[in-house]
Amino acid sequence: MNFNPGLLLDHIPTLAHGFALTLLTWVCGTIIAIGLGFSLAVLQTLGGTFQQTAIRIYNDVVRGVPFIVQLFLVYYGGPHLGIRGDAVVIGTAMLGIYGSPYFCEVFRGGFQSVPVGYIEAGKALGLRRTTIMMRIILPQMLVVALPSVVNLTIVLLKESTVLSVITVPELTYQVSGISSDTFAFAECFLILALVYWALVEITMIAGQRAERSVMKFMQR
């Protein structure tokens, strides 16, 4: 048996670059997914039948097609349809789109969980619609939505590994390259697994802290 994780030390600059790109695609992809999902949820809650139907179809399609197929379609098929772009840009945008329907559902459920009476109290006191949205509905919705938001953020981190198939040089891409150059498959992928696991743990701890602070008021 030969197990020598030390040989990865020779590739630290490459790995660091890959790690940075993993963080970039993940964080930006998640921000896009949350922003898009939130806008869709607002539209679905306030919009008419047309918007609601359009959003339902969008959600079904994006959730119904595997992420890798979506990536191939847009990255390799895109140029034939006039969509061209850098792998990192397309990959990040697609990660955001892929996550958006899940966030949309979470936020929509969150909106529905806010009692109408809270909104009526705001209206009766003369608060403007945006004030009611930002200061009453949103914080209340977060209480319900936050655990799922943390979960989805973790899912998107793991999905970001799929970007390696369209040559986004993120961590999984770099480690695969190193492993096939050195044949140190066990070392490479064990370390890779540990890195993702550590990121997931950190995210979960941060999420639990956020949940606790958001729910402070519920402690009797």
Partner: peptide, 12 residues
């Protein structure tokens, strides 16, 4: 001014 049966205080 309005007062509701369910109070409707904002719990957060």
């Amino acid at each position: 001014g309005m007062v509701f049966q369910q109070f409707n205080l904002w719990p957060h």
